[in-house]
Design a binder for these strands. Structure first.
Lengths: 219, 219
DNA sequence: ATGAGGCCTTCTGTATACACTGAGGGAGTC
DNA sequence: GACTCCCTCAGTGTATACAGAAGGCCTCAT
């Protein structure tokens, strides 16, 4: 793997896992020494992060980690609802039902995954990721898929703000199951409605459980 | 202005103006010499182009200009319809009507601009760009605005494929005027409908006037 | 004491040199 | 004659050196 890829992945994870807090200045020499790469691949990594919106160039002070305010979360979910509800509807028109029937079956059994002992909930998030990937594949629109990929990076960061307790994840699994079921039934409007419902509940959960502490890390 | 910005702008224009045809290999040393910059800023420019989708890294052969097939245009307009119809609806909910009343008035007078002698139709495209900017500002969603910015780069390239004759531009101006009018009237569903209608007619025009010659430039 | 100006430090932006990988061609062998 | 192996070369990936700019701090003058 290239050094620039390693630097990008490391920085992206540090930002989405909130190890690098908003407002942190990412000085090139400092980060290149920390990550063990030279400045050239590090700059490429910073360019990619800035293109995705995880960092921004603050004048001549280098790049800083972007903030995530309450307004940002609203805007993020507004775009997310636009894209994902459309994607779900298109998937319902174009999908092979078999894939989504299988996903639906697995999602109904998701509570067993969530009650498990994995604190990272990897098994569940893997399953949710497979549903996203299946929708992307069914929609078969590379531009739409790219736009949603760009969003999901930010969503991982927001997800870390909310306490994803077992109760919420169990409910989310049921909502995901409803989406998969609607797509398998090839019902676009139902798939769209199920997606909108799921996203609204996700947003409510994020906003209720964890009032974002977005202005306290600016030193 | 930085050298990397100049290199990016030059390459982006060369690609959207079809001076660099799809399939063209952009070798780093060759392009850095042509544009009069070093390899380092040129690489940054190529990274930006690749992030936008105008180029792609073809294995170890460097970056190549991406192709625009008929399917790509369909996908592009599918995403464009999703984003712009939503943006128009949100703008209708949130806009200050004054701005769009003024734009509506100017768009009704657009045929005078189009009949002018400017072959680049700059006056008209400026007006259309101001409508886009006004919608972006009214929606006030930076994520949605960024997603639409990413699309517009590709649309400029596709526009060059179609013969934007005075007749089509006059019709497009009327469609734009309908969108501005609906937003000024604060009617979201009407704004959405007018946008969908405009995009469908644009797509039909592109596909009818100029069957894309997308497989003939691959040497 | 306070403000302004100059110097110094440290950062980014750019250029260039070096290494490594992959592909292509030529020669040798079966 | 064909296939395989090796050599060479071109091109990217990485490191580092250098220059220009900006910000901060110190000093001097008022």
């Amino acid at each position: 793997m290239r050094a620039s890829d390693r630097a990008y992945a490391a920085l992206r994870d540090d930002i989405t896992e909130w190890r690098l807090l908003p407002g942190t200045v990412l000085a090139e020499v400092e980060q290149s020494e920390r990550l063990g790469v030279s400045r050239t691949p590090l700059r490429e990594a910073l360019s990619r992060l800035t293109a995705e919106g995880l960092t921004t160039t603050a004048g001549s002070r280098g790049v800083v980690v972007t903030d995530v305010s309450l307004d940002d979360i609203d805007e993020l979910f507004e775009l997310r609802e636009t894209l994902e509800s459309k994607a779900a509807a298109l998937a319902a028109e174009r999908a092979d039902p078999g894939v989504f029937l299988q996903l639906h079956k697995e999602l109904l059994e998701a509570p067993a995954l969530i009650d498990g002992s994995d604190p990272g909930r990897h098994a569940y998030y893997d399953l949710a990721g497979r549903l996203d990937a299946a929708i992307d594949a069914a929609v078969s629109n590379s531009y739409l898929a790219q736009a949603m990929r760009g969003l999901r990076v930010h969503l991982v960061r927001v997800r870390r703000l909310a306490a994803d307790d077992a109760q919420r994840l169990t409910a989310a699994a049921a909502e995901h199951a409803a989406i998969a079921e609607a797509i398998a039934a090839r019902n676009p409007r139902l798939a769209e409605a199920a997606t909108i419902l799921h996203l609204h509940r996700s947003l409510s959960h994020v906003k209720n459980t964890h009032t974002p502490h977005h202005k306290e890390h600016h030193g």
